[in-house]
Design a protein around this nucleic acid. Structure first.
Length: 415
DNA sequence: TCTGGGGTCCTAGGACCC
DNA sequence: TCTGGGGTCCTAGGACCC
């Protein structure tokens, strides 16, 4: 019998912003961008949620629902930093920790009674430590499976603890909407509703065989989930078994759709550089490169190409991506979004002919130097010639003027 | 409701090989 | 040249999560 904790930070992005600007506390706050921008809500404060604002909602819609809200840009670097602090608190509490995303983690607390006492007492200790060390609230779900722990932390929000006692899993789940089950999204929910299945209890009453026939492998996993089992997919893996990224990608949505080839290719060059940089940071070489292209009507295509070897060089990535673009873009069609995606890591060192090797080495050195400059002066300090020529000029949150230079860092007051 | 960006996992068809 | 089956890799798309 296991005891799992699921620790989920409350309104994480909003709470971090409040640490930097305490005047935001208690107010309706929307993180994600300006109200007139293309984009969606990344996080909404509880005060904003009362107006119907929620994450993934278009910013313009959020503004209509709650014009008095304060809209702030997201600061990914800040969130990564605080995520690291959260991780440290959890790690100090129990060595069996797995961050499931930037703001949530699973802990295996099996057999820690002697150290922390019964589960609820342990949870309260952790809850207090988290607040003291980070200034942030979290909610904690406790259960014999990770699935039930996750669902119970959601029920515990905000700032609460909920323990589902072993043996009571099915009873806890039965009255909940099927949508509460991780993995059941809009589409599956609709499919289940069409069968008259609305609550997890409805699901639990069905035959496994019926669900498997209806939904395949996923249906079988669903049957297990309805009983509270860690069935299928990500829930089936060991805690702490996370091995590193399987893909690295960057994409960009234009402020206005464009069919200007120079601008499109300059953007692909920039995205290729960003992907190349991440690959070098992670010491990875990608064998498969993929272009993503979204037109004005939101129709989206992806086109991939696999190389005989791996690469982490901006120029090689860009060359492949540009070829894919030229072969697949409907000339003249306005583009909304472009993306560059790398995956399929090459195993170890791949051989190259000597000439290629030498050229390769020189590029690697040049790019390492560019990475150091970017670290020091900001991302726009150095760029491939192609991204400059085409005029990659769209502003970013990090750097509104599009100029090099590091912004002065403000420290939150209570840390 | 005019719809981000970074990921994971699954399905399905075709190529190719044995 | 009337046609099997399995394994693996590649590609494209889609559901879902935070």
């Amino acid at each position: 019998m296991h005891t799992y904790f699921h620790v989920d930070m409350d309104a994480f992005f909003v709470s971090v912003e409040e640490l930097y600007d305490p005047s935001l506390r208690g107010k309706p706050v929307v993180v994600g961008g300006r109200p007139n921008e293309r984009g969606v809500v990344a996080a909404a404060s509880y005060a904003a949620r009362r107006f119907g604002v929620h994450s993934a909602m278009p910013l313009r819609t959020a503004y209509k629902l709650c014009p008095q809200a304060t809209f702030v840009d997201g600061h990914p670097q800040r969130y990564r930093e605080y995520s690291g602090r959260v991780h440290e608190v959890l790690q100090a509490f129990s060595p069996l920790v797995e961050m499931a995303s930037i703001d949530e983690a699973y802990l295996d607390l099996s057999g820690t009674e002697r150290l922390y006492g019964p589960p609820l007492r342990a949870a309260h200790i952790l809850h207090q430590r988290m607040k003291a060390a980070t200034g942030l609230n979290c909610s904690i779900g406790i259960a014999s499976s990770r699935l039930v722990a996750k669902i119970s932390s959601d029920q515990a929000k905000p700032n609460g603890v909920l323990w589902v006692v072993p043996g009571r899993e099915a009873a806890f789940l039965a009255p909940l909407d099927v949508r509460k089950v991780p993995g059941v999204g809009k589409v599956t929910e609709k499919n289940l509703h069409a069968l008259g299945i609305r609550k997890v209890g409805d699901l639990a009453r069905l035959d496994d065989a019926f669900l498997e026939e209806r939904f395949g492998k996923w249906g079988l996993a669903l049957a297990g989930k309805s009983r509270g089992e860690d069935a299928g997919g990500w829930f089936d893996t060991e805690i702490g078994a996370g091995e590193g990224p399987k893909s690295i990608s960057h994409e960009h949505t234009f402020m206005e759709d464009t069919s200007d080839v120079a601008q499109l290719e300059a953007t692909l060059s920039k995205l290729s550089e960003m992907v190349g940089r991440r690959l070098r940071e992670q010491h990875l070489e990608a064998r498969t490169l993929q272009l993503k292209l979204r037109y004005t009507d939101f129709s989206t295509i992806t086109r991939a190409h696999s190389l005989g070897r791996g690469t982490q060089l901006d120029t090689e990535i860009f060359e492949e991506i540009r070829a894919l673009f030229r072969r697949n873009w409907r000339p003249g069609a306005a583009v909304r979004l472009l993306g560059v995606h790398a995956s399929g890591w090459a195993e170890g060192e791949e051989q190259m002919d000597l000439l290629g090797e030498e050229r390769h080495e020189r590029w690697k050195q040049a790019l390492a130097a560019a990475d150091r400059l970017r670290d020091r002066y900001g991302d726009s300090a150095v760029s491939l010639a192609a991204s400059l020529r085409g005029g990659f000029r769209e502003r970013t949150h990090e750097n509104p003027a599009g100029l090099p230079g590091k912004k002065p860092a403000r420290e939150p007051e209570n840390t």
